[in-house]
Nucleic acid binder design. Sequence first.
DNA 1: AAAACGTGGCG
DNA 2: TCGCCAAGTTT
Length: 353
Amino acid sequence: MNFSNTVLTWYNNNKEDFPWRMTKDPYKIWVSEIMLQQTQVQTVIPYYKKWIIKFPTIFDVANASDDILFKYWEGLGYYNRVNNFRIACNQIIKDHNGKIPKTVDQLITLKGIGEYTSSAISSIAFNQVNYVIDGNVKRVMARVLRLKNFSKESLNKMKDFLSANIHKGSPGNFNQGIMDLGRDVCKPKNPLCSICPVASFCMAYIKNQIEKYPAAKKQTKRLPHYTIGVGIIWNKDKILITKRKKNALLGGLWEFPGGKILKNESIKKCIKREVFEELSIDVDVLKFITKVKHSYSHFKITLHAHHCLYNTGKIICKASDNYKWISPNQFDQFAFPKANHHIFPHILNQEVI
DNA sequence: AAAACGTGGCG
DNA sequence: TCGCCAAGTTT
């Protein structure tokens, strides 16, 4: 049996019934593909289910406020995906009469849809013969073709192979099959070659060199670490939250104000200074609440949260897009970064002063 | 075109 | 504890 039929047969016998595999609705396929970018299947499943119920069509997304969209994305990460997704929904309404286009050339013009996602949607939802190359496919191909790296040259070899071997009758299932294979069998570490359906096609396996492909990456640099002061600013029974600027890190999410500590600065001074610089108000920094360690993709932080009392000044949002005074029982109505979630349970645990 | 962009799980 | 990795795209 040839490569394409081998992959397809394996997929048909081993596929899991993920919720986005119960439909051919291109909108739903699209939602799943955006959520799955750099995000594991098990993480996506609950988000996908809730999203589809709340926003069943592109029109529901186009008409929703960004706060509600972010709330349904809260915790998934890479929040610009939400902005891009809504922009793309509007593009479709404006330029495609509300119908999701089916060719790669049209799909790739939509915000947030690149080379991978355009091929995925066109093949899975519309049965167009386009191969996909994601992280899984890259690894499978590196081993099958015995390619050390992911250079332009290597990628071209993968493309040639996939172009020749994609299943013409079921391109979408072939694509999902090779991705599933990469995730569950041809894993980064300890690949399960003994049960791999394409082992007989795999040059690395045949030469007994599976561990050499792809070559290990160079060591990544240690992530920089920053210490951040965070103010839980009280005015009577309300707490101040601010909305992070769009297109920035965590753009569009709400948070407690604060910022990076300066050299030779105390946490309390840092919070007082940051709050004044960012909001033009004066606060008294009081009791320590909790410390939160958190790691982002390109740096790490430790948050030091303190209770604060609003003192004087009219709020001017210099470093944020908006602000609100809310009660602690309203935290769940806004989308917050994960690091802020770790502060919530400590806020009411003690007296403010 | 290298860096930015979240979070969770695993070895 | 820490690095790696996950259905990538944008600037």
